[in-house]
Simulated assay, not measured.
Amino acid sequence: MNNIKLVKRHKCVISDSDLEFLSQDKFPLFCGCVNSDDQDDYICDQNWTISKEGVIQLQNLIPLDLLYANGHDAGSVGALWEEHHKEFANFVIKTNPKSVLEIGGGHGKLSQNCLGIKNIKWTIVEPNTENKYENVDYIDGFFHKEIFNDRYFDTIVHSHTFEHIYNPHEFLEEISSVLMGGGRMIFSLPNMKKWLENKFTNCLNFEHTIFLTENVLEFLLQKHRFRVLEKQYFKEHSIFYHVCKDESIDTLKVVLKNEYDENKKLFLDMKKYYQEKIFSLNQILETTNKKIYLFGAHLFSQYLIYNGLKIDKIISILDNNPNKQEKRLYGTNFKVKSPKILKEQDDSLVILNAGVYNDEIRKDIINNINKNVEIIGF
């Protein structure tokens, strides 16, 4: 643990105001699955703070090369994600881009959905791309404005990337500086306010280190002279933005609205909810004779385990992503299995805490695997 040189936030990364302590807990550095031994796992302190304006943020940050050393494949599996990628692709295509730079392209789903509709020059900048497509150009590494020194792009696109950025001001300043010629930025990000209201545990974590409400986001955009041309909601999952550079914006008149009371209450309410829920769940686990499984080889399960869920009766963790199956969930000793193992098990109980994906997973288990499985959801 002492080998990690943490990046410290001493002031609010959005407003530069002082930070107030909210909570501290220990949590696995990585929220995915690995083949390595558990002795290689890092369990780190999560120190959550809030600014006087109400911007919740993590104080101690993990170096990016370590945080993403095992990659990041969120958004690659599931019907809801597929629907998101298609809707966002349509949102991008209707702006008629000619040459796109996608930041954090990862699994490539967005590029392939867009290129299936229209022939566009598409480039992805991404530090860890395993499966590359022939119809896409790739730049290995993190985004930096020097990419534009010998290349031209009329549109910058990113999907569920902005919430991973440690310093949004620097990120937007870099993009703003290379879009001087009327270029556009189109992006999708989680509807974080809805996620926290709905008590989704993947809202804030080592990867999502700032609570980006629409108020905070639109303050940032205006501060860097971006005007919102269109905004679209994708269920309670994501928000799509289409913005352009507008040099006429007077940045001195841009003010960050105060959300302190509202956001602090949302955060503390979620903490209290899980304390009570895990306590009652532990009572059920002590008395049941059923075979117990935990769904979600991700932060969803890690959150329950590291907040007091009794794991001695849990057989394994289930996940429908084949890339995670037969691997170990980081920060635990649990090997991941396919939910298909429930097929003949009528005496099974599944703990389900997968946020916005709960309904999709519940329906899949009941309708396609075994209708007799008992599911306890959050």
Rank of each mutant, 00 (worst) to 15 (best):
F153A: 03
N60G: 12
L217T: 15
L179C: 14
I292K: 02
P322C: 04
M180Y: 12
S159W: 02
N321T: 06
T123E: 04
G355W: 01
L256D: 01
D246P: 03
C244F: 09
N167H: 08
L196A: 05
V136Y: 02
H72A: 05
K121Y: 12
L329W: 05
T332S: 14
I175L: 05
K52G: 11
Y293M: 10
H164I: 10
Y274K: 11
H208K: 04
F226R: 04
Y303E: 09
V228L: 06
K313W: 03
T161M: 03
N113V: 00
M192N: 05
S177R: 11
C114H: 09
F143W: 08
D261K: 12
S348V: 04
A74T: 11
F148H: 03
G116T: 07
N119P: 01
Y303S: 14
D319R: 01
K194S: 15
L115Y: 07
C44L: 15
F148I: 04
D346I: 00
T155E: 07
G181P: 04
I139N: 03
D246F: 07
L179T: 15
K253D: 14
N263H: 13
K26N: 15
V228A: 08
Q59W: 01
I315M: 07
V216T: 06
N35W: 03
L80Y: 00
N202I: 13
N47C: 07
I366R: 04
L67Q: 11
E146Y: 06
N321W: 06
S159H: 03
L179Y: 07
E360D: 13
G106N: 02
E87W: 01
